[in-house]
């Protein structure tokens, strides 16, 4: 057999038809970003490993492709584009107080990206840096909805969560960081049984225990916010709900509420998110096709303290969703 028939596992060739469809979708989405005033940038595919190895919020070394520079420095194929853009913003654009940036580039995962196992996928996204307001969160969501519509999808939902809500509950329960992290994992799996066992072990106060046990059920339409308000005795929880309400009131003006649902149990596994978090889902795809959120504590790791919010989507996932909807061609 011709040995050139094989390419490394987890990678693919884009043949003319699929490539032209992919390019078309990426161009449509990028032009919707550019029309909204976002400037396109590009960062290198190779970065120093340190860029992604920030304590607590970075990527695990075993998840990244590693190479070495001619002087022996450790380089990686970027697993994410937000972190290099944060580096760029803090070092090369530090004189700007407000940045609206967009990108389209490949990211690499050594173990294969979680859902379909791709080791290389193209991500398209935006970063809005220097604005901490709820209107910046709303701007991001509006762009997310519009770009998915631009790509040809109609039947999708953007689910909104808020990381402060969970943090507030954990503070109230008096749980330390590693216990909170354990609970976060259980909440992510909606594994109520394990949550209950753990809270009993830590002898958490009964009323807070019941609040936490209800967390995995706090998803659905906008009315969920009302049932969540009874938690508002905690200032951080209250702040989280206020933030979502402000964002929703802006989306209402744009008549985009039909695309929005709430899930207060979204506790994103990407560790750099600090406020609102969201993901785009559609019925034909068993995993999110868009993820985003606020990351106010990331950029300061690279030398400038700056709030930011952004999102990214994987063009391959959009292609799959469109094909399953019968709308690809």
């Amino acid at each position: 057999m011709n040995k050139f028939k094989n390419i490394p596992y987890g990678l693919q060739d884009y043949l003319p038809l699929e490539y032209s469809l992919k390019e078309n979708i990426e161009n449509k989405i990028l032009s919707s970003f550019k029309n909204a005033g976002y400037q396109m940038i590009e960062t290198p595919i190779l970065e120093y490993m340190d860029v992604f190895s920030i304590s607590d919020i970075g990527f695990a070394a075993e998840d990244m492709f590693k190479l070495s520079d001619s002087n022996g420095s450790l380089l990686v194929l970027r697993p994410d584009i937000t972190m290099p853009i944060a580096r760029m913003a803090a070092t090369k654009l530090s004189d700007k107080d407000l940045l609206k940036l967009c990108y389209c580039g490949n990211v690499f995962h050594l173990k294969g990206e979680k859902k379909e196992g791709y080791k290389q996928v193209t991500q398209i996204g935006i970063e809005l840096m220097g604005d901490q307001s709820a209107s910046a969160d709303a701007e991001c969501l509006i762009l997310a909805i519009n770009s998915l519509r631009e790509a040809g999808l109609n039947d999708f939902q953007i689910e909104i969560g808020q990381t402060d809500f969970f943090k507030g509950l954990m503070i109230e329960a008096g749980l330390n960081e590693s216990d909170s992290e354990q609970i976060r994992r259980f909440v992510e799996m909606k594994d109520m049984l394990s949550i209950e066992i753990m809270l009993d072990e830590k002898s958490v106060d009964l009323s807070i225990k019941n609040d936490i046990l209800e967390l995995p059920t706090l998803y659905g339409g906008i009315e969920i916010l009302d049932s969540a308000k009874k938690y508002s005795k905690n200032p951080l929880c209250k702040k989280a709900i206020d933030n979502i309400e402000k964002v929703l009131s802006i989306l209402k003006e744009y008549q985009l509420l039909e695309y929005i649902s709430i899930d207060l149990s979204i506790v994103q596994s990407v560790h750099y998110y600090t406020g609102i978090v969201f993901k785009g889902i559609c019925p034909n795809l068993g995993y999110p096709l868009l993820t985003g959120g606020r990351y106010d504590n990331l950029i300061k790791n690279y030398g400038k303290d700056m709030p930011a919010v952004g999102f990214a989507m994987t063009s391959k996932h959009i292609l799959i969703a469109l094909e399953r909807e019968g709308k690809l061609i």
Binding site: I281, P283, L285, P288
Partner: peptide
């Protein structure tokens, strides 16, 4: 067990 997206889209 339930698929994470199905719980919402076929809730």
């Amino acid at each position: 067990v339930v698929n994470k997206v199905s719980l919402k889209t076929k809730g």
